[in-house]
Design a protein around this nucleic acid. Structure first.
Lengths: 157, 157
DNA sequence: TTACGTGCAAATAATTTGCAGTCCC
DNA sequence: GGGACTGCAAATTATTTGCACGTAA
């Protein structure tokens, strides 16, 4: 594969295009390198699927399906590995919403979620919801994160 | 369904003892019958383990271990079934805290949780934490429940 | 070149299910 | 007695791991 460091001195026109400021693929590679992950073919493809469409909530299985549909050859194991690597790197946030599968959120900023029972679907809570007075964390502890999940059910049942 | 009221006229001494006002086992049987569950040996034993010691956060595996230690013969499948039946009956509340196992909470009132990372331990948030202004639920939806999990980490890392 | 990544299949973990036998009412 | 309940083992689902091979730096 061609090397694509944007500031490495190169002269191919193709490279110039790909490395151009604002080229999404190049940005993605930078993003990966920034967090210490080698920008491999599958990481870039998966990163593209994850980050090119705004905020998403996705499971490993869903991402795998999507990769298959997009003709991106990648194994399910690599999808799992990649999701966890991205999460550790701070590119994703993992959400425990029901006891079984994990959801990954491409929006890593503080925000909360609606969960639609039955649909198994996650929706960002739009407004800034302040969680009221949090009690002090117990001795020697600090708050790492606060997760709020508002469970919704279809009206009239 | 037949009711086993503690004052129902019976003449066996053993029954008298078990049915006596304030006898926890009898209370438990009533509790089960009230929610439409037949008070079987294993449901009573598990109910005893669950409800006799104040508020608890327990997984199926933990409850099974505890039953084994208490020499209560019960299968893991029955533990799972029982936990779910109790949950549907409103005697327990199921919590999704990490992506894998489920926790069951014997406190079914509105309250929130601390989760200690590493320890895999759940603690009730003591004070009443009001979740700030909840945005209106989307069209045709209503809020079933709000879960707040405050993730704690050991200080100084 | 060489350590880091990836794919595959097998392993694990948590949970559910089918069904024959058991127990409560 | 009869339907509800349980136990066991096998099935499922979600996820992880070991290891040979591929590939980015």
């Amino acid at each position: 594969m061609i090397e694509l460091r944007p500031n490495a001195p190169r002269d191919s026109a193709a490279h110039e295009m790909l490395a151009r400021r604002g080229c999404p693929v190049s940005d993605l590679k930078d993003k990966l390198r920034h967090v210490g992950l080698r920008p491999t073919r599958q990481r870039i493809s998966l990163g593209w699927l994850l980050f090119a469409k705004g905020d998403r909530h996705i499971t490993a299985e869903m991402l795998y399906e999507e990769a298959m549909r997009a003709r991106v050859p990648v194994s399910l194991a690599t999808v799992y590995n990649t999701l966890h690597q991205f999460t550790e790197a701070g590119l994703l946030r993992q959400l425990a919403v029901d006891g079984s599968k994990s959801y990954f959120d491409t929006n890593t900023t503080e925000h909360h979620h609606f969960f639609v029972e039955g649909d198994e679907q996650l929706i960002d809570v739009p407004a800034d919801i302040a969680v009221g007075d949090l009690p002090a964390a117990p001795e020697g502890m600090e708050i790492a994160r606060v997760d709020v999940i508002v469970r919704l059910r279809r009206k009239g049942r």
